[in-house]
């Protein structure tokens, strides 16, 4: 269990040492095995929260624990923790191969040449093994970061914007790896702006605004049920009623929403025209819709 209790972080800025609240009484509870997403606008405090969870930043007030222990820099606790930073702040004077070997060896892992090679090949970095990190592209550096996350048998993974700079193929590969790890019981904490990506993988999420948690729940609960409409998929017809709002159509089928009070009218129309209905379900908003509505609903008072 990862827990942040009443965590506040204040920075001092400028000559007049003006106080800036980066986190404001933040409470987080991440259970073992969660795929937890930290969501929010730029400057909401997602990265700061992650730095606190990792012990890289000491909270001004409050307490952070991982499995009941306060994370101390370089402590033994990190033997089972992996961290992928948002910015590629790596040892850029090392080559790709050397960097992966170095980071892996810091975990106490035996990083022989075949193991490093295999890891690099898996991430399609094999041909760049001898390239200095300072000459690598953003995407390649991100892959180095991913490689060092995969060397130890981490039970907790902290990923700050993990898909940043990756090509679509790498995004899919890494997503699959993460889902596989999460299924094997690994707790994953992820910061991301890509809500569609989060929606695909996360099980729980917290939405942050101005350093505060404004919503924290399972993803299915965050995607609120719309009680005013049904989501319907049926056989397409050129004269479908106007109250049926089309969303997409493919292969002779159409998906859309219909107001709750007009569902029976739609069913009468399908019966009259002998149209096949594939599904009728309660309409759920997307994570993106929920994200915007939650942020709009709870104006921060910070």
């Amino acid at each position: 269990m990862i827990r942040a209790e009443d965590v506040s972080v204040h920075f001092r800025q400028g000559i007049r040492r003006r106080r800036l609240k980066a986190l404001d009484h933040l409470d987080l509870e991440i259970h073992d095995g969660d795929f937890f997403a930290l969501l929010g606008e730029n400057g909401a405090g997602k990265s700061t929260a992650m730095y606190c969870l990792l012990g890289l930043l000491r909270p001004t007030t409050g307490r952070v624990t991982i499995s009941g222990r306060v994370p101390e820099l370089g402590s033994d606790l990190f033997r089972s923790v992996a961290y992928l930073p948002e910015e590629p702040h790596y040892h850029d004077y090392l080559t790709v191969e050397e960097a992966v070997r170095y980071y892996g060896s810091l975990y106490g892992e035996r990083m022989g040449a075949p193991r490093v090679r295999a890891l690099l090949e898996r991430l399609r970095l094999g041909e760049f093994a001898k390239m200095p990190l300072r000459k690598c592209s953003k995407g390649m550096k991100q892959k180095v970061g991913i490689a060092q996350c995969l060397v130890n048998d981490a039970r907790v993974m902290f990923l700050d914007e993990p898909m940043r700079g990756l090509d679509p193929l790498a995004v899919k590969d890494f997503r699959d790896v993460l889902v596989e790890k999460n299924r094997a019981g690994v707790t994953i904490v992820m910061n991301s702006h890509l809500l569609a990506e989060v929606e695909m993988v996360a099980t729980r999420a917290a939405i942050l605004a101005h350093g505060r948690v404004v919503a924290q729940d399972t993803l299915s609960n965050l995607r609120a049920v719309d009680t005013t409409a049904y989501a319907v998929e049926l056989q397409d017809h050129p004269d479908l009623p106007v109250f049926f709002v089309r969303e997409s159509s493919l292969g002779g089928r159409v998906q859309g929403t219909v107001p709750v009070e007009r569902l029976y009218e739609l069913l009468d129309f399908t019966r009259a025209n002998n149209l096949a209905i594939t599904s009728v379900a309660q309409h759920k908003s997307s994570l993106e819709d929920s994200f915007f509505s939650i942020l709009a609903r709870k104006p921060p008072d910070a």
Partner: peptide
């Protein structure tokens, strides 16, 4: 700022 890569591993 690459020390965070070192101190988030078991290396004090």
């Amino acid at each position: 700022r690459n020390l965070k890569m070192v101190f988030t591993k078991p290396c004090p």
